[in-house]
Design a protein around this nucleic acid. Structure first.
Length: 888
RNA sequence: GGGCGAUUGGCUCAGUCGGUUAGAGCGCACGGUUCACAUCCGUGAGGUCACUGGUUCGAAUCCAGUAUCGCCCACCA
């Protein structure tokens, strides 16, 4: 009785197949780890970098998802206790940026709504958008455990944030103090150093005169000190002029005063070693509230810091007549004023570095304010040691240096944000100035210092930097601080996979807080992928119109094709270009697999006898090739070498299986003299080989392989045993069949040689030509005879005439091949005319080279004996080959 | 200013511990309607591995320097 045929349609329709296959997996609950860890298994856990809740899926997400899914599927097939936990990040500043724009279209703003209504609106926005990124990941095939999906604004995450912060506070690693921080006047919040992006810009440096004070307190019109600045508007906040104490030009002025233009303030002229005599005029105006250097200097000299800008970077009341003016505006006016007084000496273009808000690109303003800081130095020391001592490995390794450099030069983390969307800092102030930090969801009962009742306390309005909750992600998602079974089973996690662009933002902070909170490294490996660039190596951007839209690509060529294109040729940490050619390659490969499967399924012999014949050479050979590919793919995936893995499976599938094996299988299936048992053996090898290929390819190309698997299973359930490929076993390691490989190599070399001859002799592609072969020995003769059917078909020759060794064939004019004859030996060597001569010459060159090498006493004495031995063997082979070719 | 990386055929990239004649895909040339696939098949051309020097029996690979490109970090007004 034959099973019902399941024919694959001639065209692979990814758009139809992929969603259906994904639904099938979900229906079977295939992504979720079992309730209990299977005994004796290792866990493999990937905690997904949570995409921003507001972000539409871009090509970087697609790469992340592909890489992680490939790892996860591989380990799932290996039988490991595998968890891939998905999530979404609340992205406070990013989300507010987006929502502000949305509500602006309704004529609303943050201010008009107020905190409470704004947050209500934000939650509504979240409800509308949160699912989108997940849907998009489904289309890519991400086999994540949706039942464990987390959001950084979940209560579990909120609790983790409070507990972690309380512990840091109790450990004395949190402080609140006045400091000059990065401030975005548009987002109206503090930024960490990482969010302050420095860019080189050509600005202007102005030199202006500050007149010296006369004894009567008025400015001396004839005496001044010239200062250089790139920010004239900060003049309003100047409280001193500084010079180098050893600067002969100015030494005499130290202790005197200058009069600040416009405002008329008295500025002491002070000496400070930090002033660079060679820069500008050698005299610096000091604006402590608006410049980090000046702030440090002011602290040393006890100078007042006058803040002259408000939160929106407009001049405040301290700026006198300029109050309310934008900083740029104020700059122009002040410059005009100085010009009018002839106190503007010079203006020159100036190469400088300007900080911009990472989110909105507004120029960041240093701002003096009271802020929450985490003293990260002790955490960084530990995180650094973990990597130095190899408990966490970063791939590629050179990023360990980058990581170390950052950790060694780390500054305290300004962790508070003057935003609304996020985790509010769980600190309460009492009227007496005490601060109470709690890890409870509610207010503390009383002030921890003076015992004043909760009713007297007010909570801090600042929220946490988004990355604070992200830093806890690997364990807050598993139930920490509770000792949950998930924590015990899945923590620490295995591989943290992400782009190198967030090494500091995220990976470094996960290391620091992971070690602080859980006393263990949160993952043993950090796998950093590179950035995806457009053709020409330029950054992909929507505005440039050169970006690849992953979902559009999925529509067009399917997720498998996109995944293959993303992974093939990738090396960790290095940027890659995603070109149309690469995407086409992915599509073509999908198509190739589909058609190979169609061929196999369509060619099953009608009746399969229960006993099959001995496997053919083709069957043995492909089994051996697959054994080798399995071994390599396994090693490569274990080493997280995805580019290598992709190359391995591509090559074995296309070159070995399709180009050679299936062509040989056609011969075996179609030859007239084959028995049913022989045909069955060949088909079983083809179907079995296909099954192995599907297993090998599934981690990278899950959809098409699963679809083919289902069809194969319908046809041959004993070959595709498991109901779902996603849950099927990774191919077992088998040993290679070296004799079969050697026999194949001889035969294929002969076939290739004959093809060369045909091309060179201009033989019509379809024409059958006679072949005369002179085998080296009886063994070769047997091999040729054995492979005659393959030869006939793959080299299109017939008849094949075999001459005994040493007997020069007389058929010099055997048809279109001209003076052709063929000698076959251990390494088959077909020849014709000048080609034969060229080959002799090449052999002679190589023989010469190796003889010289072996004659070199230094080589034989110093090289390892294995290397010397290999050279000897090679020489012997070449000499034998040369002997077969004869002289002429 | 400091650090990191890259440089391999026309293009995009592999290249294990230093060890035969440096590989692949695309592109190119030539030939193909063989009943899985023209999203395909066969054959071929194309590389002094950026440059200079060094270490070594042996260097694309290790070391030093140079050049070009890229990235990251950084409070010089």
């Amino acid at each position: 009785m034959t099973t019902a045929r399941r024919e694959l349609p001639p065209r692979y329709d990814a758009a139809a197949v992929e969603p259906a296959v994904y639904a099938r997996w979900e229906e079977a609950d295939a992504f979720r780890p079992p309730a209990e860890a299977p005994a004796g298994t290792e866990s493999f856990v990937v905690i997904q970098p949570p995409p921003n809740v507001t972000g539409a899926l871009h090509i970087g997400h697609a790469l992340t998802a592909t890489v992680e899914d490939t790892f996860i599927r591989y380990h799932r097939m290996r039988g490991d206790d595998t968890l891939w936990l998905p999530g979404v990040d609340h992205a406070s500043i990013g989300a507010q940026f987006v929502l502000d724009k949305i509500i602006a279209t309704d004529g609303e703003s943050r201010a008009s709504l107020g905190r409470e209504r704004y947050l209500e609106r934000m939650w509504q926005f979240m409800d509308e958008t949160r699912h989108i990124i997940g849907e998009q990941h489904r289309r890519l095939g991400a086999s994540v455990d949706w039942s464990r999906e987390r959001f950084t604004m979940d209560e579990s995450s909120a609790r983790g944030v409070r507990v972690a912060f309380k512990r840091l506070w109790d450990a004395g690693l949190v402080y609140r103090g006045k400091a000059l921080v990065n401030w975005c006047p548009r987002c109206l919040t503090t930024l960490s150093d990482l969010e302050n992006v420095h860019r080189d810009e050509i600005g202007t440096i102005w030199t202006m005169r500050y007149h010296l004070e006369r004894p009567d307190g008025t400015p001396d019109p004839d005496a001044w000190i010239s200062v250089a600045t790139t920010r004239p508007e900060t003049l309003l906040g100047d409280t001193a002029v500084a010079v180098h104490p050893d600067d002969d030009r100015y030494r005499a002025l130290i202790g005197r005063h200058a009069i600040l233009p416009v405002l008329g303030r008295r500025l002491p002229i002070i000496g400070d070693e930090s002033v660079d005599r060679a820069f500008g005029t050698g005299a610096v105006k000091i604006t402590p509230a608006h410049d980090p250097n000046d702030y440090e200097l002011a602290k040393r000299h006890g100078l007042e810091a006058i803040n002259v800008l408000d939160e929106g970077a407009r001049v405040n009341a301290a700026g006198g007549e300029f109050v309310g003016r934008d900083r740029q505006d104020a700059r122009e006016s002040i410059l005009d004023r100085l010009r009018g007084m002839e106190d503007l000496e010079a203006e020159r273009p100036h190469q400088m570095v300007v900080g911009h808000c990472e989110r909105c690109a507004t120029v960041v303003e240093p701002r003096l304010s009271v802020q929450w800081f985490i003293n990260v130095k002790p955490l960084a020391d530990r995180a650094l040691a973990s990597v130095r001592e190899g408990r966490t490995k970063i791939m590629p390794a050179h990023f360990e240096k980058v990581y170390a450099h950052w950790m060694e030069n780390i500054h305290d983390w300004a962790v508070g944000r003057q935003l609304w969307w996020g985790h509010r800092i769980p600190a309460w102030f009492c009227p007496d100035g005490h601060v109470t930090v709690t890890d409870a969801a509610d207010a503390p009962d009383a002030c921890a210092d003076c015992g004043r009742p909760a009713s007297d306390l007010t909570q801090e309005t600042d929220i946490f930097d988004t990355w604070f909750s992200s830093a806890l992600w690997p364990f807050s998602t598993l139930g920490w601080p509770d000792a949950t079974s998930d924590m015990a089973r899945f923590y620490p996690t295995s591989v943290m996979e992400t782009g190198y662009d967030i090494l500091f933002f995220w990976v470094a902070r996960m290391m620091m807080l992971g070690l602080f909170c859980t006393d263990v490294e949160p993952f043993h490996t950090v796998y950093l992928h590179g950035m995806i660039r457009a053709e020409g190596g330029v950054k992909m951007s929507k505005t440039k119109g050169n970006s690849v839209d992953p979902l559009g690509m999925v529509d067009e060529i399917g997720a498998d094709a996109l995944r293959f294109a993303l992974v093939s040729g990738m090396a960790p940490g290095s940027d890659q270009r995603l070109t149309q050619a690469k995407l086409d390659g992915g599509r073509n490969f999908t198509n190739k697999l589909w058609n190979a499967a169609r061929f196999v399924l369509a060619n099953r012999p009608g009746d399969r006898p229960s006993d099959t014949a001995e496997p053919t050479l083709a069957a043995r050979w492909i089994g051996s090739r697959l054994a080798d590919a399995t071994k390599r793919a396994t090693r490569q995936l274990d080493a997280l070498d995805l580019g290598g893995y992709a190359a391995t499976v591509y090559e074995v599938a296309w070159s070995d299986y399709c180009d050679w094996f299936l062509e040989m299988a056609k011969v075996d299936l179609r030859r007239d003299d084959a028995t049913d048992a022989e045909r069955a053996a060949t088909w079983v090898a083809a179907a079995g080989g296909l099954a192995t290929l599907l297993r090998l390819l599934h981690p990278l190309m899950p959809f098409v392989t699963e679809e083919i698997w289902q069809a194969l299973r319908a046809e041959a359930p004993e070959i595709a045993a498991e109901p779902l490929l996603i849950r099927a076993a990774w191919p077992a390691a088998t040993t290679r069949d070296r004799p079969a490989e050697a026999a194949f190599d001889d035969l294929s070399t002969l076939i290739r040689g004959i093809r060369n001859l045909r091309t060179e002799a201009g033989t019509p592609a379809g024409a059958r030509v006679s072949l005369v072969v002179e085998p080296t020995d009886a063994e070769s003769a047997a091999a040729i005879e054995h492979g005659a059917a393959y030869l006939e078909s793959l080299a299109r020759v017939r008849p094949i005439e075999i001459h005994s060794a040493g007997e020069r064939p007389t058929l010099v004019a055997a048809g279109p091949l001209g003076a052709a004859w063929l000698a076959v030996g251990g390494a088959a060597t077909p020849e014709v005319g000048k080609r034969r001569q060229a080959q002799r010459a090449e052999l002679d060159r190589n023989i010469e080279r190796i003889r010289a090498l072996l004659a070199n006493a230094a080589f034989t004495a110093k090289a390892p004996s294995a290397v010397v031995e290999r050279e000897r063997e090679r020489l012997a082979d070449l000499e034998q080959e040369r002997g077969q070719l004869g002289a002429d």
